[in-house]
Amino acid sequence: MYVAVKGGEKAIENAHGLLAEERRGDVSVPELTVDQIEQQMGLAVDRVMNEGALYDRRLAAIAVKQAQGDLPEAVFLLRAYRTTLPRIGFSLPMETSAMHLRRRISATFKDLPGGQMLGPTYDYTHRLLDFSLERPRAQEPGGGDKGPKPPGEETPCPRVSDLLAAEGIMAAEETGVGDEVPGDLTRQPLKVPAERPVRLQNLARGDEGFLLSMAYSAQRGFGTSDHPFAGEIRMGEVSLEMVPEELGFPVVIGEITVTECVMITPPGPSKQGEAPVLTQGYGLAFGRSERKAMAMAIVDRTLCSRELGEKVAYPAQDEEFVLCHSDSLEASGFVQHLKLPHYVDFQSELVLLRDLRNDHREGHRTCDAIPN
């Protein structure tokens, strides 16, 4: 047994060495730097920050490099590091209506109060391979910036949902401001049924592909929000505030880039005595994560079926199904654990199967011995 353990240790060390060689690749090619990943693979970095539940572009870029671009593995690395960090307090709710906008669009209002802003987007690009990207672009004068700077003074743009709520045609939303601190999925296990703040935490950390699939299923008819409207999608920088105990008043501790999405659903059957209203789903994600925020908003709305008195009949409405299977880390771990040794389990299955086959053969022999 001791020899087996030592042999296993050496094999694992060798595997680590081979992995480092594979990660580096051809040494004649310049090594990819963390700065390059952070600046030029921003959408991958944003996804890792979202599912890793940690806003730190540098650390996310390191994780992407270490994982060779395998984003679920990079999420695993970032989550593992996150568990070593101390919790020093809680921030106040972000005021996204005061966002320094870089992108703001609405599919519900052409003349949106405050205006529409296309911003950086792939929506209008041709899906053709750009072979000019094989050649490095010349450094432009004054280059080297860390990305677009948010504008200075801006007039706050009200959210579309706030405009509709002021008209009385949008269902009232519980803000949660002033209530007790919501549950923390990083410290308490998920319990179903879950309150909406916990559900939103789960979805914010959820695998983008899974949420996209659930949102798609809801739109195809396996849910209530079969055709939601993109009330508003906005992306930009938001100030983060917290109230230190020793001060007693809010202070700005930094600024983060976020993408916010509100999906509006047409009114369904209303309760007796109540006027019909629009309902909404909400999505908020780190960085430029538009697809994630949109899918999150659609799935959030489908998971509100129980509170809205709607029949829960489809996978996207099933709270336990969605919340318990959305985490890429848990899903990946449960599938990949099948690579680990299961020698004893499999041998017991073989013993059982051989016994059953012997019983089957003996039964046939007994039948053959009985005269007609």
Rank of each mutant, 00 (worst) to 15 (best):
G333M: 14
V160W: 09
R57Q: 14
R23S: 10
G89V: 07
Q139L: 14
E241F: 15
E140G: 06
L211H: 00
A204M: 03
K10I: 14
G268Y: 05
E274A: 08
P30Q: 05
R104N: 09
V252T: 15
F222W: 13
L92P: 05
D145W: 04
Q317S: 06
P136M: 08
Q139W: 11
M94P: 02
L71E: 10
P371K: 00
Q36N: 07
V238N: 04
R58A: 04
R288Y: 11
E246K: 10
F222C: 01
V351Y: 09
G178N: 02
L212Q: 11
L133Q: 11
L211V: 07
F346N: 04
D207A: 06
P193Q: 07
D35Y: 05
V243A: 00
G144R: 02
E307Q: 14
V198C: 01
S305K: 00
V5L: 11
I12H: 09
Q347E: 11
N358M: 13
T259C: 09
L92W: 01
E362M: 09
G273W: 03
G152Y: 04
G17C: 08
E362H: 10
A295D: 02
F346D: 04
A80E: 12
V48K: 05
R103S: 15
V252H: 08
D359H: 10
Q317T: 04
E319K: 06
V192D: 04
A4F: 02
E245K: 09
P228D: 02
E73N: 12
A165E: 13
D207G: 01
G221F: 05
A98T: 13
L329P: 00
G7A: 13
K271S: 13
M49V: 00
P189H: 07
S132R: 15
Q347G: 04
Y343H: 02
M99Y: 07
E255V: 11
E274N: 08
E310F: 15
R104S: 12
A316R: 05
G287F: 04
V75W: 07
V243L: 02
G287H: 01
D46T: 00
A369G: 02
H342V: 05
E319Q: 15
R187Y: 05
T259E: 01
S239C: 09
Q272L: 04
I370M: 10
A80H: 14
R103P: 06
L338R: 13
V45R: 01
A44S: 13
F109L: 15
T175P: 00
V243M: 07
D327C: 10
I62R: 10
L54N: 06
P150Q: 12
L323A: 08
E349S: 12
L340W: 05
P120M: 11
A204W: 02
D56K: 11
R301N: 15
L112D: 03
G236C: 02
A63G: 09
E95S: 06
S225H: 11
T125Q: 13
F76G: 03
A165C: 09
G333H: 14
T125Y: 12
T302P: 01
V277L: 14
D226S: 14
R137N: 11
E330H: 14
Q336L: 15
D123Y: 08
V75D: 08
F210I: 07
V251N: 01
L211Q: 05
K110T: 13
G287M: 03
